Simulated assay, not measured.
Amino acid sequence: MSEKKALVAPQPGSPAGTDAERIRAALLAIAAAEFASHGYAGARLESIAAEAGITRAMIYYYFGGREGLYVAVLEDAYNAIWQAEQCLIVDSLSPEEALRRLVEFRVNYYIQNPVFVALVSIENQQQAQHLKRSETVTSSAAPSLAHTASVLKKGQASGVFREDINVVDLYQVIVSLGFFNVANRHTFGAIFRRDASDASHVCEFVTDVVLRYVARHPKP
Rank of each mutant, 00 (worst) to 15 (best):
E3K: 15
E3H: 13
K4C: 05
K5F: 13
A9Q: 14
P12G: 06
G13Y: 10
S14A: 15
S14E: 14
G17I: 01
T18M: 14
A20K: 01
I23T: 09
I23N: 14
A26E: 02
A26V: 00
A29V: 04
I30Q: 03
A31T: 09
A36S: 07
H38E: 10
Y40S: 06
A41W: 07
G42H: 08
A43N: 08
L45R: 06
S47E: 11
I48K: 01
I48V: 15
A50Y: 04
T55L: 06
A57M: 14
A57F: 10
M58W: 09
I59V: 11
Y60W: 12
G64K: 00
R66S: 04
E67I: 01
L69W: 06
V73L: 09
L74A: 01
E75H: 05
E75Q: 10
D76T: 08
Y78M: 10
I81F: 10
Q83E: 15
Q83H: 14
Q83I: 09
Q83Y: 08
Q86F: 03
L88D: 03
D91P: 02
S92L: 12
S92A: 14
S92R: 15
S94R: 06
P95N: 06
E96V: 14
E97P: 00
E97Q: 10
A98C: 12
R100Q: 03
E104P: 08
R106F: 07
Y110H: 15
I111R: 15
I111T: 11
N113L: 07
P114E: 13
V115I: 15
F116E: 03
F116V: 03
L119R: 07
N124F: 12
Q125H: 12
Q126G: 05
Q126K: 12
Q129K: 15
Q129L: 14
L131E: 11
L131Q: 10
K132W: 08
T136K: 06
T136W: 01
V137I: 10
T138M: 11
S139N: 12
A141D: 04
L145P: 01
V151E: 01
V151N: 00
L152N: 04
K154T: 11
Q156L: 07
S158M: 14
I165Y: 02
N166V: 07
V167T: 12
V173F: 13
L177H: 03
F179E: 10
N181D: 14
A183L: 10
R185T: 09
T187M: 13
G189K: 13
I191L: 07
F192V: 06
R193V: 07
R194I: 08
D198I: 02
A199D: 07
V202C: 04
C203I: 05
E204K: 07
V206W: 00
V209G: 02
V209M: 11
V210H: 00
K219P: 04
K219I: 08
K219N: 11
